[in-house]
Amino acid sequence: MATIAADERSPGAVGPGPDGPRTGRNRAGRKLKLRNTLIGWSFILPNFIGFAVLTLIPVFALFYVSFTNWNVFGAAQWTGLDNYTRLFGDASFQKALFNTFYYSVFHIPLTLAASLGLALLLNRKLRGVAFFRTVAFFPYITSVVAIAVVWNMLFSPEFGPINQFLRAIGIDNPPGWTTSATWAMPAVILVSVWREMGYYMLLLLAGLQTVPAQLYEAARMDGANAWQRFWNVTLPGLRPTMFFVTVMLTIQSFKIFDLILVMTNGGPGQSTLVLSQYIYQKGFVENQFGYASAVSVALFAICLVVTIIQFIANKRRES
């Protein structure tokens, strides 16, 4: 095997070399392919079995439930596409959908920029860097209840420090933040960026370690400035991690739940109602699990489409 691999070796080959029978002996090639598949599966199976039993089966059940009127108790009656057609006439669902997009469109790029900035800033051997990294990660480990309480206080329209500051610099009519239907969403976005930037910073920090230091030096020698080095060395080296971070960030944004629940509970009115919260409301509060499942499937479909687009874009950039 070792010798074949040596013959087959070509730069950029992915996988354990021999997946094309160039020696002309098809039988051996097929055997190798089979062997390869078996080895591949042997790596995946330990995780996949647990994943299939504990996640896939319930998720399939969810898909089934979305075509029924299940209310948790007792039998589920098949209602066909009823739940899905109902989505089209449900103004609250559409409001939640719109708000989820609104949130994501701002949350994703802002968090990405903030966490990348933090990661670059804190990816060096500085005195006290451990402390600053921990600080950046603190919002993520702090209880979400405490976060909501403190930020709400900072946002308090009359007595909050933020508006006091805004008045001091001459803004007479500062926004009502979480108490205003217009400003509640920007306030939530701000807090969620603050909360999650440390989380993604951590992932990006790990990714930055894969960028070979030698490349920076080579670029420096070529006279590249900091921006050029970032653009031509850091970003390409970070691509796999960036892909991971963007996909996760996108999915997590579409699924935003707990922060909104404790910060505004979807209000004022429905101004910060998002899809996950709507699912919870329909399922656990109103016991319409069939309908809630249909909303989940819709959310899943949206995420899937966006993820596949990201996948294709990533593949294209790769080649």
Partner: peptide, 24 residues
């Protein structure tokens, strides 16, 4: 349960003065 949710939204919209009582 459904109506209480709807009226809960009405409450926060009215009390925060985001919406007038009649509109809400």
């Amino acid at each position: 349960a459904i109506v209480q949710n709807i009226l809960g939204d009405l409450h926060s919209a009215v009390m925060s003065e985001s919406t007038s009582v009649a509109d809400a």
